[in-house]
């Protein structure tokens, strides 16, 4: 018993020591991905900061409401504050500035972008960090920028993220890669806000039906034995 307690204590201490040191960038991974994934609320909150200060200049998030931010760990007062700052209420959809016309391309609504694009948050990260000078032999259309992750390689969106584009309240260094990863996790949540509940219910349901299957098969065998 004492040994179990000691082991638990060591694991707990290791867990606490590990809590804020997790590096999701090398290699790049998202807590929301995978069969047992959950939304990384700290990353998603930082991602909301990035969305609010950078993305919202052009992109709306029209299917998500300010009240939904409470699911990311914001208090009702904080969510109401966010709504008030944008001139809305808790029940207002999160609208960005009026969509700019980027030379004929209209910035898409970001509510479901992680579900719409193959690769989800990985694609968003690769896209936001994929800007660069066009390789030799590529002639860009007027008003377009080269992006290695975008199908076709040319996008009307400019390279908007850079080191220090936002100030994080939790002390995480706002490097360009960190901002891209955080906003990708935030948009993964926006596209699938029920992910945590789905995985939790699913886990319980699987345990329940595994036992039910065993009982049902055993009862079937017992019933049929009397027939023989």
């Amino acid at each position: 018993m004492r040994r179990v307690f000691a082991l638990t204590a060591i694991l707990t201490i290791l867990g606490i020591a590990n809590a804020h040191a997790e590096d999701t960038l090398s290699p790049l991974h998202f807590q929301s991905q995978g069969p047992l994934g959950t939304i990384d609320k700290a990353a998603a909150q930082r991602g909301y900061e990035v969305y609010k200060s950078v993305c919202a200049g052009c992109h709306s998030l029209g299917k998500v409401h300010y009240r939904d931010l409470e699911a990311l760990g914001l208090t009702p007062a904080q969510a109401a504050g966010e709504a008030l700052a944008a001139g809305g209420t808790l029940n207002s959809p999160i609208k960005g500035a009026a969509p700019l016309n980027m030379g004929g391309a209209i910035p898409p609504d970001l509510s479901s972008i992680a579900a719409q694009r193959p690769g989800g948050p990985n694609y968003i990260y690769n896209y936001l960090t994929g800007f660069g000078p066009a390789p030799a032999g590529v002639t860009l259309l007027p008003g377009h920028n080269y992006n290695a992750a975008f199908p076709g390689g040319q996008t009307a969106m400019p390279d908007v993220l850079h080191d220090g584009a936002v100030t994080y309240q939790d002390g995480v260094q706002p490097t360009k890669a960190q901002e891209a990863a955080d906003v990708a996790e935030f948009l993964a949540w926006a596209a699938d806000p029920n992910l945590d509940a789905r995985h939790q219910i699913g886990f319980r349901a699987i345990i329940f039906f595994a036992f039910l299957t065993i009982i049902a098969v055993a009862s079937k065998r017992k019933v049929w034995r009397t027939q023989a």
Binding site: H199, G202, I206, L212, T213
Partner: peptide, 14 residues
Amino acid sequence: LAVLAFIFVLLGFY
């Protein structure tokens, strides 16, 4: 039916 329900929750939730 129990086996089907097991496959159902596996697919539906994951």
